[in-house]
Amino acid sequence: EERRGKGSTGRKSEGELSAEEKLRRAEARIRLLEAENELLKKLEALERQTNKTLSSPERFQLIDLVLRKHGLKRVTRYLCQIAEVSSSGYYRWCSAEGRRQIREEADERDFLLIKEHFETRKGRAGVLVIKMRLERMNGVVMNHKKIRRLMQKFKLVTLIRKANPYRKMAKATQEHRTCPNLLKRQFDQGIPEKVLLTDITYLRYGTGQWAYLSCVKDGATKQILAHYLSSTLELSLVKRTLDLLIKRLDGNVHPDAIFHSDQGMHYTHLTTRRLIAEAGFKQSMSRKGNCWDNASMESFFGHMKDELEYKDCVSLQELRQRVNEYVTYYNSERYQWTLKKMTPDEIRNHLIAA
């Protein structure tokens, strides 16, 4: 009988099904729900474990695993919708099974070569070291990206030096903290001892010895208010310079005095920051990697290294004496064009008188 257009599909209604057919449908529905639930759980667990969104091939593999496990048919498109991938992409992935198998076998052969050199170096061979050893010892030219991919795939982790935990501890405890740039390159504000610039420079002398000079410079008068030379870069280098500065000022600290430096560990350390605050200074720091924010201090170091004969010194005491003599000369005798042709000491007296 022709049934088109008569409102019936020709399928049996729920009431016309036998008990066996109803049971079969119920079992199929249960298998589908179990497959759907398992697929969603696996997707969520893997993404949480890897902390990233799974790629399409990884999703295809999960769909294939679920279909085989539950023996489902004609639900591939539905599972692809759940996994948010295209069904056509899944079928292409299935058709490439042979090529994947060939690649897997090739990866395993290459991995055995990589593993041999990895174990020879007792787990201390990185990607580039393995690449060089493969070329020299086995005559195998393998791209370093492939070596890295295979090492990640087969969980080969190179033993490297552990990171210094002090940095993490310092960050967690806020032991080293930077300050905003309050100065903004306004070095000369016309008031003596209001802008205090500081930095550390390296001096190589004698037969390769190193010395470290810490200075504090007045931004307005360009005087060197305090300096200290040391053979080490310990925190005490800055502390002693600050002590000399405080002794030089003798309690006459400008209420808006700014102590400006770079972001070196000597100046971000909690001890130094506390000393600066107790002295009554507002601490300011240059932006990271920007030497121009402390250009006036850098300029002094440049002139000093051009004019001071220090490389032939044979001892730290001799170098310290020459640095002291140069600072005295710089403050009292060295005329500067930008200071109205006066010395730093003369411009200070001039500003105070004005």
Rank of each mutant, 00 (worst) to 15 (best):
R322N: 10
S332C: 11
W337C: 11
K340W: 11
V323I: 10
R322A: 09
I347N: 00
R322S: 06
E325P: 07
E333I: 06
N331K: 00
D345Y: 09
V327I: 12
Y330S: 03
P344V: 01
T328V: 12
T328S: 13
V327N: 00
I347R: 02
R348N: 06
P344F: 07
K341Y: 13
Y329L: 06
E325L: 10
T328E: 13
Q336W: 05
K341T: 08
Y329I: 06
V323D: 07
P344Y: 03
E325S: 13
E346L: 05
R322Y: 02
K340L: 10
Y335Q: 13
V323A: 10
Y335P: 10
E333Q: 13
S332Y: 12
W337G: 11
V323K: 02
N331W: 07
N349R: 14
T328P: 03
E325Y: 02
I347L: 08
R348I: 02
R348K: 14
K341D: 15
S332E: 15
D345T: 09
R334V: 04
Y330P: 01
T338Q: 13
H350D: 05
Q336G: 02
N349M: 14
K341S: 12
H350C: 03
N349S: 14
R334K: 07
Y335I: 14
T328I: 10
D345P: 03
N324D: 15
L339W: 04
W337D: 09
E325W: 08
N349G: 13
E325T: 09
S332V: 05
M342I: 01
R348D: 01
M342P: 02
E333A: 12
K341C: 12
R322P: 05
I347Y: 04
N331D: 07
R348L: 06
Y335F: 14
E346M: 08
K340T: 10
Y330F: 11
Y326D: 01
Y330H: 05
E346Y: 02
N324Y: 11
S332F: 11
L351R: 10
N331Q: 04
I347P: 00
T338M: 11
V323Y: 03
T338P: 06
R334H: 06
E325D: 15
L339Q: 08
E325F: 03
Q336R: 05
V327W: 00
T343S: 05
H350Q: 10
I347T: 03
N331Y: 03
M342A: 03
E346I: 02
V323W: 00
T343C: 00
D345W: 08
